[in-house]
Design a binder for these strands. Sequence first.
DNA 1: TTGTAAGCGTTATCAT
DNA 2: ATGATAACGCTTACAA
Lengths: 343, 343
Amino acid sequence: MHKQVTMQAIADEAGVSTATVSRVLKGHPAVLEETRQKVQSLIDRYHYVPNFAASSLVRQQSNMLGMMVENIENPYFASMFSAAETRALEEGYSLMMMTEQPGGEEIQTIRRLIQHQIDGLVLLSNRINGRPPEEKIVRFVQEIAQQVPLVLINEYLEDLHIPCVFADNREGFLQAFRFLYHLGHRRIALVGGLDDNQTFHIRRQAYLDFLKEAGLPFQEAYLQMNGYTFEDAMNSMHRIMSSAQLPTAILANNNIIAMGIMRVCHDHHIHIPDHLSLITCDNTFISEAVTPSLTALDIDPREQGRQAIDILLSMIRGETPPSLSIRIPSRLVVRSSTARPPA
Amino acid sequence: MHKQVTMQAIADEAGVSTATVSRVLKGHPAVLEETRQKVQSLIDRYHYVPNFAASSLVRQQSNMLGMMVENIENPYFASMFSAAETRALEEGYSLMMMTEQPGGEEIQTIRRLIQHQIDGLVLLSNRINGRPPEEKIVRFVQEIAQQVPLVLINEYLEDLHIPCVFADNREGFLQAFRFLYHLGHRRIALVGGLDDNQTFHIRRQAYLDFLKEAGLPFQEAYLQMNGYTFEDAMNSMHRIMSSAQLPTAILANNNIIAMGIMRVCHDHHIHIPDHLSLITCDNTFISEAVTPSLTALDIDPREQGRQAIDILLSMIRGETPPSLSIRIPSRLVVRSSTARPPA
DNA sequence: TTGTAAGCGTTATCAT
DNA sequence: ATGATAACGCTTACAA
């Protein structure tokens, strides 16, 4: 905010009032062409742009949306934000993103976003997605929803009465398991995540239901939900390997986990996909660039981001969303990490 | 911007003036303890937070910084932003990030940031980093620098007189080449990037200088600068393989390129590091999680982000930065993709 | 210690 | 077709 060109300055130099300048800016028809041109040329010359702070103040609308994201260094969230930003911009809104800062004061973060007078907020936090959801956070979110139109990117929470955009993990995972089954796999494992989270719980449930549907026995060692990190994944894989019989296929809950599994396989000369098929959940550039390229369940972060913005904008327009639960279908992208099981 | 609690409302209910509420908010000492408590309790009760738009307007300062980033889906830029955001927050500033939208109207993006009344701007764009820098962009950047404190994350451009934060690519690459040399490598290749970009030109130059210093012959096929993508990297690697003799080590200009090389090596049963050593330039989680884990040149995006914010803040305070070129040293992180050359 | 009041740069209503 | 003018919510001299 150095030396700002104000509307008043333009008006003075053009010999008109600020009202007229404002009309020119808005493309209001009731302006003499001659006046319009004079004003416009001044605007161009000085690269004048209206001060958003001033106009927010009087219009009671900032044309700025907010988004809180867990961790932008995760390419999955980055894609989501990127698509959301593009969509917001298309609709004439800026998107202000803040990350849940380490130390976890997401409440501070949200307040800060609100202070910036955002017209709507997209929230994405593991804290809301807990199982069961944390009482404190839920109360806070309810309260926020009173203050500003709010959309969650989260598993649907019925009693919250807040629109939720969520990937269809259940159908997606069932689809992935069935794909493996049809390839001939009968010993299939699931690795990664933690059961204290809604999303991973749903995936786990899909796994159990698939086993039942396929008439396959449940094996303790084939369900490894010990965390999100590379090391967690390596540990899980080691546990699997110490079981009686190796599975012929594994579904990994994200790319990092898949990479952890690949590392262990490599170290033990387990060849993917000849000895073991692997599916990852996260279709980022990593899934493709890794060797072998990974068959991936695409839970479509970009579409989640776009939809969240669309719903937010419709709420801002005063429309009631037709449904509070917006399901984004997942789809399987087949690459080189899956094959028939070894004979 | 639903139903906002205003300062006036707090003042009325407390039976004081807005001036007093403002003083309480700022921790101004000249307030009776009793008054302070009364006001504070109301603030807490209503979760009142001041309207940034209004206060920006009168203070002529928004406490918001801007950052334009090429592509946030690249983990390298994501780390840079993340560190910058954390630093900004520590200093009481929000950081509004916008990505260079596809279609390349970064000028629009920057204008938009400025409209939001940011107090300072960090710019990061391949366009400024061209070789030679694009006339049009340079002029625009000059002009922007008149309007708002500006820091570039970019190779230093002497005649711009704008602070630049840049990784020491030259020293970093020399260090990496020498590391390979000391391992015994004599046939070393450089893959990736394009020579129309300052950064990659500097790296290329470091390569040539290293060859000279080591008394090694320059081989056309060992210098492959054909682009940034996975496919470009695969093509480069194929060209290298069709040369008379395979190199014993390759330096890849980023992770994607390294992964492209790894793919081709895998397909041709070239073992890393036994047959070929590989160093990547980008020390993200990918370098570590890929198998084999990659020896990486860390050009420290987090430190670049932090420094950019620090310099910006000092400029906002009216200080003159001690130097316009801020060099961030690079360091080599040794992992499993490098070894002595095959006998 | 507290209040009054003048702005900050816009927008929008109401006159002209 | 254009211009006054009153907000918008806050900060900050200055006055009391």
